[in-house]
Amino acid sequence: MTAAGLETPLIGGPQPVASTNGDSPLNGVTVGVVTFPGSLDDRDAVRAVRLAGGSAIHLWHGDHDLRNVDAVIIPGGFSYGDYLRAGAISRFAPLMEQITSAASGGADALPVLGICNGFQVLTEAHLLPGSMIKNNHLHFICRDQRLRVENAGTFWTSDYGQGEEIVIPLKNQDGQFVADNRTLDELEGEGRVVFRYVDGNPNGSRRDIAGISNAAGNVVGLMPHPEHAVEAGFGPDSSARGEVGVRGGTDGLGIFTSVLKKLVG
């Protein structure tokens, strides 16, 4: 075995290496999920893509090749421990250079989703504006969070209705979205506020913003975790769509079906 042969992480334990979903019309779409050394929700993001009907592969932060994936998810976690500033080191990973340039292209730019730490990485990489600071109450917070989809026109939200509400888990320490007023006004004016917290702002984020997009709508970042509301029995106890069973909420699935359907055309 050589170092080169180890470029993609081996996934041990009970989790599936995951990937294809034979019956789905969407399985021709392959989503790459980036693993940094401190990524935590990478396998969960792979599972979410699979449950949405697509195919998923793991991408290693140290690689220089996007392996022809059709879209990329930067998952939650603490990419390099985040002792400096969340995402500050990750943006310099070799794979991030590839992602940044592919996501910045024109009409067929690469769709990229940053969840939690992934959102932080995207702001550090300047694919998205603003920044995340420590929650205003200074604690880590894990709770089921209600959001409103403010823009159903992005690559990652087209399967939702405009203004639709969803419930997905939120869990972070540095989740307070901040930006200067001009940037905030710009985001609002251009319809780039994609998700907004409703029923209580959990971290002091400016204007209750939970997620935003770039101007083209291919790059989206959000703090809450849609990949933890995709499988009945393992999601939140509630859904914005009405009564569900215990941990039956699957409101996050739409994020993943959105991009898959969009890419299939």
């Binding site: 935590l40 604690h139 894990c142 975790h225 941990r247």
Partner: peptide, 25 residues
């Protein structure tokens, strides 16, 4: 318990305040 992550790994079937924590293997 809200300061602890109960979702990561995607296999948590029960957590506090239920009687026992349950994870899928």
């Amino acid at each position: 318990t809200d300061q602890y992550d109960r979702y990561v790994q995607g296999n948590t079937a029960l957590a506090m305040p239920d009687d026992a924590g349950v994870v899928r293997v």
